[in-house]
Amino acid sequence: MKRSGLCAVAGLLLLPSIGLADLQGGDPNLAKGKAIAFDMNKGNCLACHMMAGGDDPGNFGPPLIQMKDRYPDKTVLRKQIWDATEKNPSSVMPPFGKHGIMSESEIDQVVDYVYTL
């Protein structure tokens, strides 16, 4: 079974990133990005990813943590969200930009928010 072993680890790692998100929580752009990411009819990232502050996360994909460290180049992160099948053709992650699930500006907002995780 492919249960993600990362999840157990993530529980520990999440604590500092919650603090980080809260620090920047006052930014309305980030708040909007978070709302879109959590919205079941938009990003619905929680369906598949553990994210700080989100309830009932799924575990199809890895926890979204330490994004700045892992994505020094923010445009790489945006690409993953715009069309995950570019990097992994068989990815189950929906191509949010390519299939118009989110608008370009919504994606920008989600990227900005996810980058704080």
Partner: peptide
């Protein structure tokens, strides 16, 4: 969402969606 039956029920069977 560009997903297949197999994507969920083969590749990710046993995982959690929410």
């Amino acid at each position: 969402l560009n997903m297949s039956c197999a994507g969920c029920h083969m590749e990710y069977a046993g995982r959690q969606l929410r």
